[in-house]
């Protein structure tokens, strides 16, 4: 199932043709790649003509969260955080900076619909699985036998945002429980807390290991640090990544960050549809 197929796109377009979508990401003052996925997703949604206006805004780049609503002309505005989990940014920073009072804020003739972050939508599991299958396919290797393959989902993992740790664990549990089995093991691992990604050799025992970083962009962490922790390379920028990497008699694949997947645009749209059926339905029973 692609995220976009959960509802009728024509009906969605008709419903939202006067509305605005705001994609809210983190951004960076040093790293150009940080905001790239949010821009790409917004571009894709623009091309589909689903909304009258599509805007991006960031915490660390311009246009900034604080001023974004000044440039939006539509009366109904959907705000979707391009974050992998709820937490400090989605629960404190965005509501404060955009002056939101809850999921639904009515102000100055505008209706502000604050949707769930992209990473929380159930469709993200499907994107993760497709991403993992694609990195294997792109390496020229035929589909791997599930019983000989492990999926390693990597998160950052610090005390700062327990929700992001939780969601990585949930994804691993959800994929691990799927019938028929897609992987012999689906395991969560973290850069800065147990179970550590550097211990992958003992975390999973299968001969094939496919790694997907549960990050919103190929920022410094996922792009440069994880392959080093996995033992795939000593310097990603210098040597790049070769999939699969043969190591200790096993094969290891490393996918780009989940948030860079073009299907995330569909998940953003799906979060708007989710808002319509849940939060808006509650407001107008």
């Amino acid at each position: 199932m692609t995220p976009g197929s959960c509802f009728d796109l024509h009906a969605f377009r008709a419903r939202h043709r006067h509305d605005a979508l705001v994609v809210a990401g983190h951004g960076s003052t040093v790293n150009a790649d940080s905001s790239t996925p949010a821009y790409r997703h917004a571009d894709r949604i623009r091309e589909q003509g689903l909304f009258a206006e599509v805007h991006e805004c960031f915490w660390k780049e311009e246009p900034n969260f604080r001023f974004i609503l000044d440039q939006v002309e539509a009366e109904r505005i959907y705000i979707v955080p391009d974050f992998i989990s709820s937490g400090y940014f989605t629960e404190e920073v965005i509501p404060r900076e955009l002056n939101l009072t809850g999921p639904l804020t009515r102000r100055d003739g505008k209706t502000l619909c604050y949707c769930q972050p992209v990473g929380l939508h159930p469709a993200i599991t499907g994107v993760l699985l497709e991403r993992a299958a694609e990195v294997v396919h792109a390496s020229g290797v035929p589909p791997l036998p599930p019983e000989e393959t492990a999926l390693l989902i990597v998160g950052h993992g610090t005390g700062l945002n327990e929700n992001s740790t939780k969601i990585v664990r949930e994804q691993a549990a959800r994929i691990g429980a799927m019938e028929p089995r897609r992987y012999a093991a689906a395991v969560a691992a973290f850069m800065e807390q147990e179970p550590f990604v550097k211990d992958w050799r003992t975390l999973v025992s299968q001969p094939n290991v496919v790694t997907v970083p549960f990050f919103i962009s190929d920022g410094l962490h996922s792009y440069e640090d994880i392959p080093v922790l996995l033992g795939m390379t000593e310097d990603v920028r210098r040597d790049g990544i070769l999939n699969p990497h043969a190591i200790g008699g096993r094969r290891l694949w490393y996918a780009p960050a989940l948030g860079t997947d073009p299907r995330l645009a569909d998940v953003i749209v799906a979060q708007v549809a989710h808002f319509d059926t849940h939060a808006l339905a509650l407001a107008h029973p």
Partner: peptide, 11 residues
């Protein structure tokens, strides 16, 4: 980014 609102929507 923001140049138009900073000019047209004075805050």
């Amino acid at each position: 980014p923001s140049a138009l609102p900073f000019w047209a929507v004075p805050r």
